[in-house]
Design a protein around this nucleic acid. Structure first.
Lengths: 337, 337
DNA sequence: ATGGGGACTGGAAGCGCTTCCAGAAATGTC
DNA sequence: GACATTTCTGGAAGCGCTTCCAGTCCCCAT
């Protein structure tokens, strides 16, 4: 680089020499291993301070076979959709836990083929000590790649048809049930649902929660439209449902964004919320508090998801056998239901 | 870990042995260095394939003194505010460039003291080959830490009172001028501004752009209120300004979120936009297209910022001397002005 | 005095790769 | 056919750390 480094960083050998001890001794004080005498320790510490010595991470990694780095791999159809605050929340959660350790976070946006092969490479080259994976699609090839790596792997959410050994997931099923039960408790009977993509585990689980709640209450599922978790998608689905079931009196939308779209359509159609139609969303994003009326929704903590993923990975790396987690969701009552 | 790795990954020595050549020869084909005969190359390639060999990243890093990792360090007062899509955009831009190389991205959320010392450590321990820094506050201690590391450093945005050697920045000054000039061209004369924090370079630059445009047009700056880039802050500032300058006929808000807040207050106050009051924002976030009326604003591409930062860092690592960049901003005309 | 056991120590062998170098082999030149 | 080049090769020395191991030293019970 153009901004020259004045001189090499000092090495452990130099520290040892200056302290008048062997390199092994110096290494021992560095890792504060047992069997180091007071004078040795002090001499080494003095030398370290005087030289401004910092152990070289790479060298240590080679010797210990531990890189001190864990990866978070994110997959999404559209790389630009990484901008979804969802991912940011995961990262915040993960970082919060890692901050307490001396592990660092490597971020892999692995949507493209190129990204996937980079990830494969990273794993096989033992570039990280473990990996957290958020693959949102059912049949994401990442899942296989990562499981084959022979490294500790924690999944965020579950792929559609397989149960990974270690995962952290939100209780989507339970949350959707909660939402639907709330609507039923309100006396609504003609409850429809707007689902996310049924090809994702999240979409499927939230839909199943709705169905189960309806059936448990002795009712047939009243109507559903598959959408894509977006506001525009939610609006389109709502139009469709109004058309097919003009007498609907409640809707459970599997995401807040879709709920927001639905709210807009309902208002345009002259239905008042919650009087004519009660609406419940899912996610409890910021948007939920800002709709008109404010959205009753199912809360899940994405930061907590990130945190638990990181904790689980740490445990795995430490050789423990943690158990997979399903994080609780809860109903937040606001104005729309 | 509990999921046992079946067996060690093969090493280059084993590849060499199997191919019947020396380790140096094998290394040469790996890095396709010159002076490798056809038969040697083929024998090694065959052995690699048969063994499923992958060069160990750490070992290579130690030998070459290049980790193949670059860091992106983000600093913010409130770590939770990392959820701002701004950062996600930067990451998307950076990743897009890195994807074409074989460098990986290490993400450091370094708001806390702990985060900062971790970063310091990482740099001094030569854990990365270079670093990109987004320090939003003027006197962020990160700036000093990073500059002292003796590693290639690229700044995103400029700290308040210093000009880093290598940076990429949006043309905040020019954009603010553009916005104000647009308002002037519309015949508005009583133009006020809502600024972001003046302790940040962005806040200061956008305010200066407003002032300069006013003065160039032969007018005194008509009124300003310092805010904090948020919607709530923008609303509060707008109230203040309406109070102090009831006859204002235009407002330049230094962020779209503040503009959205201002719009809300104006509408509550019975002022129609743009008839009574013209409004221009800054950033061109998604929210700008969704306000009522849609917001005329200054566009800047955060992804491009990320991309250019990454490119600049690559150049620096390659030993070149790139030149700092100021990315253009442009006016997007929508309904509010 | 004697031996047994802990507390320390430094030498040496790695970790898995790159790279320098001296020399062998192949090629070219007249 | 003699010589200078050029291509190719493997040995060996790193990169900067950890860790095993065989000792040395010292203290205390016998």
């Amino acid at each position: 680089m153009a901004a020259a480094t004045p001189r090499r960083q000092p090495t452990l050998d130099e520290v040892a020499e200056r302290a008048g001890v062997s390199r092994s001794a110096a290494s021992r004080v560095l890792n504060n291993a047992p069997y180091v005498s007071r004078p040795t320790r002090e001499a080494v510490e003095k030398a370290i301070k005087e030289l401004g010595y910092r152990p070289n991470r790479t060298a240590r990694a080679l010797a210990t076979r531990q890189t001190g780095i864990v990866a978070l791999a994110l997959s999404h159809d559209d790389p630009a959709l990484f901008a979804d605050p969802f991912f940011a929340q995961v990262i915040v959660g993960v970082s919060a836990v890692l901050e307490e350790t001396d592990l660092h976070l490597l971020l892999c946006l692995a949507s493209s083929g190129r990204g996937r092969s980079r990830l494969t490479n990273l794993l096989q080259a033992r570039g990280v000590d473990g990996i957290m994976l958020m693959a949102l699609h059912g049949d994401d090839p990442l899942t296989g790649i990562v499981d084959r790596a022979g490294l500790p792997v924690v999944h965020g959410g579950r792929p559609l048809h397989v149960e990974p050994q270690w995962y952290v997931d939100s209780d989507n099923l339970g949350g959707a049930r909660l939402a639907t039960e709330h609507l039923l408790a309100l006396g609504r009977t003609r409850i429809v649902t707007i689902t996310g993509q049924m090809a994702t585990q999240v979409g499927e689980a939230r839909h199943r929660g709705y169905r189960e709640a309806m059936i448990m209450a002795g009712r047939e599922p009243y109507g559903m439209a598959e959408s894509d978790f977006t506001e525009a998608g939610g609006a389109a689905a709502m139009k469709l449902l109004l058309d097919r079931h003009p007498d609907l009196d409640a809707v459970f939308a599997a995401s807040d964004k879709m709920a927001a779209g639905a709210l807009r359509v309902l208002s345009d159609a002259g239905r008042s919320v919650p009087a004519d139609v009660a609406v419940v969303g899912f996610d409890d994003l910021d948007v939920a508090a800002q709709t008109d009326p404010p959205l009753t929704t199912v809360h899940q903590s994405i930061q907590a998801l990130g945190r638990e993923m990181a904790r689980m990975l740490l445990a795995l790396i430490a050789g423990e056998s943690p158990t997979s987690l399903i994080l609780p969701t809860g109903l937040i009552r606001r104005g729309s239901a």
